[in-house]
Amino acid sequence: MSERLNNVFQFVEVDRKDPKKKPLITRKGQFVEIYKPFEEEVAKDQSHRCLECGNPYCEWKCPVHNYIPNWLKLVSEGNIMEAAELSHQTNSLPEVCGRVCPQDRLCEGACTLGEGGFGAVTIGSVEKYITDTAFALGWRPDMSKVVPVNKTVAIVGAGPAGLACADILVRNGVKPVVFDRNPEIGGLLTFGIPEFKLEKSVMTLRREVFEEMGVEFVLGTSVGDDVPFEHILEEYDAVFLGMGTYKAMKGGSLEKIFLVFMKH
């Protein structure tokens, strides 16, 4: 390993390697994630391909500006817990982004190595590897320094926006109470994105982690129907709405198609 850590030409000697996929027969018939997890050595080898550009384009391209070169270095050195802590400083659901982000249009599309024809660093797969591995090893976000401020905020919608809002609030001592009409958190992450990209156990584990952090979930409860919005507005210090978009776009003359499809 020490040899690798001193190798500045890792990006030349080691090709970009994505995690292995499951066999096609499994993929065609089952609703399971198609990628196998990175093995530890592969994750380290791949992470060390990062050039640590002085001005990391990947980080700028990422909408939440993840500290990508920094956590790649931590993975390369085997510091998985520190990598998880750092990854969570900028992202509330890194294990989800690692799975579903279009990396080829964002961080990996901006990677200097890709521009140079060497193949971008496998940033998304490493991002997923960090949090999955850290969770399995028992890592949880450090809440030991959080001081409660005696404020509560209602969040309507347990999708990515609502969960991210709850994450920041609870880390700052504000009590978030998240309402959602569905029986599980995630919004479209759970009820839209299929299992072959994001298995549902990911959100179940994430709910447990959020609950341990002090986020309260009121699921299977539709605000406006089961709970009047008046009550929420009165009882809480502020409200965040993250209710998504649910009306399917219809294409002018194609309206008929959708209706036909719905009936059959």
Binding site: P63, N91, L93, L163, A164, C165, I168
Partner: peptide
Amino acid sequence: IFAGGDMVRGSDLVVTAIDEGR
């Protein structure tokens, strides 16, 4: 009342919703 994600910006990526929620 605050708001973020798809209901504010229109349907977009998961990561942009996370950014706005934060």
